[in-house]
């Protein structure tokens, strides 16, 4: 069994959706994660706040978020246990994040030192 990080890339929800829509997404996300946890395959996860986001560059140049393109914006991640990359991908496919066009979930195996 390996651990995989599922990385969500999407826009700042607060900018593109109503509070009701956000709440609906949150519920869907909880149901999705609950389904993984019910299989004893959930390890951990966090949402990341878009407000006050900063990016620190080479030479300590600091810029503000939010960011220009969706591919640059991280909304959160979860870590799951899976037998194979394919199983981790199957988990990722259920993510409500993917309802948004242009959004993605990146699947990366965690290297345990």
């Amino acid at each position: 069994m390996q651990e995989y990080m599922l990385i969500f890339r999407h826009r700042n929800g607060k900018e593109v959706a109503s509070p009701e829509q956000l709440e609906a997404w949150m519920k869907q996300t909880m149901d999705w994660i609950g389904g993984i946890a019910a299989q004893n395959k959930y390890v951990t996860g966090q949402g990341l706040d878009f407000d006050d986001a900063r990016v620190v560059w080479h030479n300590n140049v600091v810029t503000d978020g939010p960011f220009g393109e969706v591919k640059e914006t991280l909304g959160g991640f979860i870590v799951v246990r899976a037998e194979s990359p394919e199983e981790a991908v199957e988990f990722a496919k259920g993510s409500p994040v993917l309802q948004g066009e242009g959004n993605s979930v990146e699947v990366r195996r965690i290297i345990h030192g």
Partner: peptide, 16 residues
């Protein structure tokens, strides 16, 4: 929800 959250903290077959 109660269970979605519970399972994230502590898995058990009964909770699942």
């Amino acid at each position: 929800q109660l269970y979605n959250r519970l399972l994230q903290i502590q898995y058990s077959p009964v909770a699942a």
